[in-house]
Measured scan of single mutants.
Amino acid sequence: SEFQINEQVLASWSDSRFYPAKVTAVNKDGTYTVKFYDGVVQTVKHIHVKA
């Protein structure tokens, strides 16, 4: 599913667990740039983002 900029989502971290994050960019290659609550910004594949 498509997510929008500033949408609150759950994004997987390197430990494969999902954490609350905010979408900061929707990228043309189908990835999302997300910002976790601790301030870390990461680009993740769409399969690693869920509502």
Rank of each mutant, 00 (worst) to 15 (best):
R17F: 13
A21N: 04
T24S: 05
K22W: 13
Y37M: 12
K50F: 09
K28G: 13
K50P: 07
S1C: 14
F3L: 02
Q42E: 06
Q8W: 15
Q4E: 08
Y19G: 04
K28W: 09
T24C: 12
D29K: 03
V26L: 06
R17C: 15
Q8A: 12
S16I: 07
Y37Q: 11
E2G: 14
L10M: 11
E2K: 14
K35Y: 09
V9S: 01
V49M: 12
V44I: 10
S16K: 11
F18W: 15
K35M: 14
V23Q: 00
H46D: 12
K50G: 06
S12E: 14
T33K: 06
F36Q: 01
G30R: 04
E2W: 09
A21K: 02
N6G: 15
L10W: 14
A21F: 05
K50R: 11
V34E: 00
K22C: 10
Y32N: 00
R17S: 11
H46S: 15
A25L: 06
V26I: 13
A11E: 03
Q42H: 13
V40P: 08
T43R: 08
Q4F: 07
S16A: 08
I47Q: 12
K50M: 14
W13E: 03
A51E: 09
S1E: 10
G39K: 04
E2S: 13
T31Q: 02
V34S: 00
V40C: 14
D15A: 01
V41T: 12
Y19D: 02
S16C: 14
K28S: 14
N6F: 08
E2Y: 12
A51Q: 12
H46Y: 10
V34L: 07
Y37V: 09
T33F: 03
T31E: 02
T24F: 06
V23E: 01
V26F: 07
S16W: 07
F36W: 06
S14N: 14
K22V: 15
S1I: 13
V23T: 02
G39T: 02
A11S: 03
Q4P: 06
K28T: 10
D15V: 02
A51W: 07
S1R: 14
N6E: 08
A21G: 07
F36N: 00
N27Q: 05
H48S: 06
S1H: 15
Q4A: 08
K45G: 09
T43V: 13
I5P: 05
F36E: 00
Q4M: 10
K35Q: 15
S1V: 10
E2L: 13
Q42D: 06
T43Y: 04
F3Q: 02
K45T: 11
K22I: 15
R17P: 13
D15P: 06
T33H: 00
F18E: 04
R17G: 12
Q42R: 15
F36T: 03
I5F: 06
T24L: 15
L10F: 11
T33Y: 04
S16Q: 10
V34T: 00
Q8E: 13
P20K: 04
Q4D: 07
S14T: 13
S12F: 15
A21L: 02
Y37E: 14
T24P: 00
Y37N: 09
F18C: 09
V9K: 02
A25G: 10
V49C: 07
H46I: 11
P20D: 06
R17V: 13
R17I: 14
V9Q: 02
K22L: 15
I47F: 13
I47H: 15
D29H: 02
H48Q: 14
D38K: 06
D38L: 07
S1M: 15
V41Q: 07
A21P: 02
V23Y: 00
Q4W: 06
D38E: 06
